[in-house]
Amino acid sequence: MAPKVEHEMHYRRLGRNVGLGLSLFAFVAIVFWLTLAKVQRGEPVEAFDHTARPSLETQDSGN
């Protein structure tokens, strides 16, 4: 029954490789969509470089 055992092993390897491939593809897709989601919300991003911008200043800040 040796050939059958080899088939099982190959089947298992194929399953793992397909699973890994799909996981990597999902990871890339997640990073892509996450980037889009973050870029679309512009307001909080503006403050990250610590540059004063009029759009970030409140009415009562005195400027």
Binding site: M9, R12, R13, G15, R16, V18, G19, L20
Partner: peptide, 9 residues
Amino acid sequence: TPAGDAGFR
């Protein structure tokens, strides 16, 4: 299962 041959599950 030989090392390196585990299935995804």
